[in-house]
Computed example of a mutant assay.
Amino acid sequence: MHRTYSMRQSRAPTASQIQNPPPPSSSTKTGRFFGKGNFGHTFRRNAAGAFGPDLAKKLSQLVKMEKNVMRSMELVSRERMEVAQQLSIWGEACDDDVSDVTDKLGVLIYEIGELEDQFVDRYDQYRVTIKSIRNIEASVQPSRDRKQKITDQIAQLKYKEPNSPKIVVLEQELVRAEAESLVAEAQLSNITREKLKAAFTYQFDALREHCEKLAIIAGFGKHLLELIDDTPVTPGETRNAYDGYEASKAIIQDCEDALTNWVQQNAAVSSKLSTRSRTLSQRRRNAARRQGEGVDLSHQDAPLDSRESGLWIPASEHQGNGYEDEEDVDAPSTIGTETRGREDERQIAA
């Protein structure tokens, strides 16, 4: 800003940051191969579902689309800061009251850009957690493929050589493959639920903090506008001298204090369930208790012995799964992508 007073002079951690330390900088802010334009967005969205196991393709596309969302938010953040600076530069040549208020409004808008940049980092926590579900899905696919392959071999032998002794051997292998697949599927089910809840908790907590702080800034911004004398004057008439410099600084200071001291426990907006929603939720919890809240499958989640079977392997070690780390360069696709909605799938199944 072109004035000496700015909210961002102090970088002391806020109460919210002390209570919930900020995450590392988002992985989308570095290592860009395709630059900052729309080409990278389009390429990632279209190519995401063309790589890797079938089980993980849909979630892979979601992860890449969220990456596009985050990079769009980064662009908004940078341009918001540039707008704030330009507003202050324009107001410098105006009357005293307009000059002072636009400078302070620029401080508030610049702060919004800073908050948006911090929001991107917290949003990345959600995306990375969703990405971990995708990796588990990719590691489950080999067990499904092996079970299906053995089933197909048995069906083929029964058709061509009904009395072949290989059928008995393959049926025994199928029993083992189904048992191994059952463990993998149970682990996938458990981890999916755990990670899904954690991921959207990150997102909703970040959204709540971001929106509440935006509301704080908007409220103090309107207080600043009250310092501008908008009483119409006749030609030749002069306005009273502006004496709101100290008041505008005090408003900015109050806004900074409000943002610094904000914690989630003191959030102004609360989501209250209706009586019907509370009743239905309580009814579901009671039903879960009566049913014993499901079956504990945690004992099945132990990794398989690699000496017994090579089916259950981490996604990072699965050759040909098409996945690279998030800081990779997306390779061009040579595989045609299919985008089919749930309605189409139901029609095909019918």
Rank of each mutant, 00 (worst) to 15 (best):
H2F: 11
H2R: 06
S6L: 07
S6T: 11
R8N: 10
Q9L: 08
T14A: 13
Q17A: 10
Q17D: 04
I18L: 14
Q19E: 14
N20W: 07
P21D: 02
S27N: 11
T30Q: 13
G31F: 09
K36Y: 14
N38C: 08
F39A: 08
N46K: 03
A50N: 15
G52T: 12
P53H: 02
A56W: 08
A56M: 14
A56N: 12
K57L: 08
K58L: 12
L59V: 06
E66P: 02
S72V: 10
M73Q: 02
E82P: 01
A84K: 07
Q86Y: 10
Q86I: 03
E92Y: 10
A93T: 13
D100E: 05
D103C: 02
D103T: 05
G106Q: 06
Y110D: 14
E116V: 09
F119R: 03
R122V: 01
R127G: 02
T129Q: 07
E137L: 12
S139P: 13
P142K: 05
R146L: 10
Q153K: 04
Q153A: 01
A155G: 02
S164W: 01
K166F: 06
V169P: 00
L170R: 01
E171G: 02
Q172T: 07
E173A: 08
L174V: 00
E180D: 05
S181R: 14
L188V: 01
R193S: 09
R193I: 09
Q203G: 07
E212W: 07
L214M: 09
A215N: 09
I216A: 05
F220A: 09
L225Y: 03
D230S: 03
T231P: 11
T231W: 02
G236T: 05
R239L: 05
A241G: 01
Y242K: 07
E246F: 12
S248C: 11
I251W: 06
I251G: 00
C255H: 02
E256R: 15
A258H: 04
N261R: 14
V263P: 01
V263D: 06
V263E: 07
V269G: 00
S274W: 04
T275H: 03
Q282D: 09
A287M: 07
Q291I: 08
V295Y: 14
S298I: 13
Q300K: 10
D301Q: 15
A302E: 15
L304E: 03
S306F: 03
R307G: 00
W312A: 15
P314Q: 14
P314W: 05
S316E: 13
Q319T: 03
I335W: 10
G341I: 04
D344A: 13
R346D: 05
Q347K: 13
Q347I: 12
